[in-house]
């Protein structure tokens, strides 16, 4: 699968992870260009439907990012995110989709290096898994 370029949608919370992404830029940390970020105000805005929409439109992986537990700008939004992603990952597994394709990461706005590392890891892991191809799957 070496020549396969995964498409990954990343949901970024406005206050922490988006800032982490910006800092990775300031520090010129290099990571694969396969990730496309969508900003939300809080990770708790992301609902399973957005993740499924991404998969059926052709994403090979979805990453949801937020502030570390306790750091949420909206006090406790990210706790909802933990539960949502956990429950939803199980559902995805039942649907035969590899749980590695969905990932939740806490990235603070001081963690430019972590941002770059997570994007790299995620891309490599999905590259390893190969394409999901929900869009093209024939019945």
């Amino acid at each position: 699968m070496a020549d396969f370029e995964p498409k990954i949608i990343v949901f970024l919370c406005n206050w922490c992870s988006y800032g982490g992404g910006d800092l990775a830029g300031v520090n010129r940390e290099q990571y694969p260009s396969n990730v496309l970020g969508i900003k939300v105000m809080c990770s708790s805005r992301v609902s399973p439907e957005h993740i499924m929409e991404s998969f059926v439109d052709g994403a090979d992986g979805v990453l949801v990012t937020g502030c570390h537990p306790g750091d949420c700008h909206y006090i406790d939004g990210n706790y909802k995110t933990i539960r949502k992603i956990d429950m939803f990952t199980k559902i995805l597994e039942d649907f035969g989709i590899d749980p590695k394709r969905i990932r939740l990461e806490w990235i603070s706005s001081a963690e430019g290096n972590k941002y770059a590392r997570v994007m790299t890891e995620m891309t490599e892991e999905i590259r390893e898994l190969g394409p999901l191809n929900l869009k093209d799957e024939v019945e």
């Binding site: 609902s47 406790d76 706790y79 909802k80 539960r83 429950m87 939803f88």
Partner: peptide
Amino acid sequence: ARMASALASVLGVEGEE
């Protein structure tokens, strides 16, 4: 997906922090 999102949001919401 809607039910998962709703239920996961409110399950154990009290004292979650």
